[in-house]
Nucleic acid binder design. Structure first.
Lengths: 96, 96, 96, 96
DNA sequence: ATCCATACAATCTCTC
DNA sequence: GAGAGATTGTATGGAT
């Protein structure tokens, strides 16, 4: 088998093989985007349902956002602590 | 307990029942948001994989966007055609 | 004065006047973008300065981000409380 | 107090001095970030104003982006020319 | 020098 | 339809 041809299909996407790969990637991505859209619609439906039960959608959204921010902040704090610990460890090593 | 009062908890969210409902809505929404995030990450992974195969991610994104827009346009056209057909059918009926 | 011409310059941006307006908008925006860039550079300089004084830039960034999140969360909470108050007020009105 | 110790507080951030420095850095950075945000909002306001005058914001953004890219390209070209000139000058010197 | 992460900008969607 | 809010795509900057 010609070496050049083989290399080409493996490294730079050229030729039929590349075309097949491309199609495969596109297909997979578009499939997942459909899934994502479906999930988004499910979320929207729940908000509509909540509204039908008398809840204020605006407030509900805020509550959920607030919960997300709380989680985020906690994660940030954990990361900060980790960073501090790394810094202290480095400092200790330096002092040895 | 009067039946009317019980019904009310289903229509206007007040009291323990409302609280339970609220929790349920939040739980369901947050669950779906996780799903959505997971799907987004899967999509990102595919782009990364494509990149590893030598594709230009930026261009690939453009291609997929184009396809989406084309699909949208086609759907809109189909709907328009359907509308025309309905109009023609109505017109024919009127003329009978 | 011809009425048509006057209307045109006021409602749809066409003609010399529009051109002058456009230039003015572009000039103002580009001026502000320069300002913004300058501020960004000032911020970067401070980080560099802090680094020179022995601070860990990564940690410093995290600290600032954490503070920003704290502020954001507080704002979200305030907005939520406001929303609650609006909802209660509406409810009261309904009951009158 | 030994002079060396005092110096140290300027080089490695430890102790009260470091704390004061840290606070100062944070304060300055947060101040500038506020400025930056204000400028961003000013820019947004101008776009809104332009919209009110009948301009298409999306297109206006594209125009400004184009101008920025053009400027960048021109600057890069100037730098390149400068490089050439330096090279030629060196060459001339060598030939003397 | 490249890769990754964060941050900024822009577009698009949903609500009122 | 305007306005905010969410999401996505791009670009800059930092780390290795």
């Amino acid at each position: 088998m010609p070496k050049a041809a083989k290399q080409e299909t493996d490294i730079i996407p050229v030729g039929d093989n590349a075309n097949a790969h491309l199609k495969s990637f596109i297909k997979r991505i578009e499939r997942l985007e459909e899934d994502k859209k479906a999930v988004s619609e499910d979320i929207k439906d729940i908000y509509t349902e909540a509204k039908g039960t008398g809840f204020d959608v605006k407030i509900l959204r805020k509550v959920i956002k607030r919960r997300r921010l709380t989680r985020q902040k906690r994660e940030e704090e954990d990361q900060l602590i980790e960073l501090y610990e790394c810094a202290i460890a480095s400092f200790k090593e330096m002092m040895e």
